[in-house]
């Protein structure tokens, strides 16, 4: 594994990529997220953990306005990325989602070739002037996703023909292709076997050099392995957030302690 700059110095800790304050999310009359304040640091991995239904995925989806697609869903409060309010009416959600990419639980490649899966985003966003530029983007995205060696000789084959782990890395390559700044991952490994999981985790660790990553995971061991900071959600509330090593060795809130030690959830 290559050397990586450590993001644990105090002066870098104060940087903020995503600043959420007083965020509320309602599904109809259900108050799903209550008063969440969190600052997420650039070029690091932040893990959201918590029992099912705690709101961690819902909150993740507010960061690229995926909740806009749900009619009964209403978001209040403020979420700033680089100081800009992403819920400002002037913001185009499609452009926002190019800047804030997302990877889902189940690998969901388009029913297209491996090449076209990765090229799709750059094409619709007009990121390449010609075929050779597009080739370049596809190749570098697949390289960054650690998939190039496995994919370079079968770029014309359907993405859906790959193994589950390869498909998930293809989805990560697809997310990277539009040159995002933030990558949201909603349980990206829960459908993968341990080896494929390890590859994705290795990839996440490499990606944090260039991207801000927020990952929702049900596996506390995964949160402990891949993240620098961890946030624990419970019943729609952000209970505790801090350096990952502190959350897993010396959590301050009893609810966090009970959850990570397997006492409820």
């Amino acid at each position: 594994m290559k050397e990586m700059p450590k993001i644990d110095k105090a002066d870098e800790m104060s940087e903020t990529k995503i600043a959420a304050s007083k965020v509320q999310v309602y599904y109809g009359t259900t108050h799903a997220i209550k008063d969440v304040d969190i600052n997420i640091q650039p070029r690091s991995v932040t893990a959201f953990i918590g029992p099912s239904g705690c709101g961690k995925s819902t909150f993740l989806r507010t960061i690229n306005r995926m909740n806009d697609t749900i009619d009964i869903c209403r978001v209040e409060g403020e979420i700033l990325i680089d100081g800009e309010d992403i819920y400002d009416p002037k913001v185009d959600p499609v452009q926002l989602r190019a800047k804030v990419g997302m990877v889902f639980q189940k690998p969901n490649p388009f029913p297209k070739s491996i090449y076209d899966n990765v090229a799709y985003g750059p094409r619709i966003h007009g990121l390449a002037k010609n075929k050779s530029e597009l080739d370049e983007i596809v190749a570098s995205s697949l390289q960054k996703a650690g998939l190039w060696e496995e994919a370079k000789d079968r770029l014309d084959e359907p993405g859906t023909g790959m193994s589950g782990g390869q498909q998930q890395r293809l989805c990560i390559a697809r997310a990277i292709a539009v040159n995002p700044e933030v990558i949201l991952m909603d349980e990206p490994c829960s459908a993968l076997d341990p080896i494929a999981t390890a590859k994705v985790e290795e990839l996440i660790d490499e990606l944090r050099e260039n991207f801000t990553i927020v990952i929702v995971t049900h596996s506390m061991q995964q949160a402990a392995r891949v993240s620098q900071r961890t946030a624990f959600f419970h019943l729609g509330i952000l209970v505790e957030e801090g350096p990952t090593q502190d959350i897993f060795t010396n959590p301050q809130d009893k609810r966090t302690q009970d959850y990570i030690t397997g006492r409820f959830g």
């Binding site: 897993f248 959590p251 030690t261 397997g262």
Partner: peptide
């Protein structure tokens, strides 16, 4: 078998 965390780990 358990991957102890938090107080259990300590």
């Amino acid at each position: 078998r358990r991957q102890p965390m938090g107080g259990d780990l300590r």
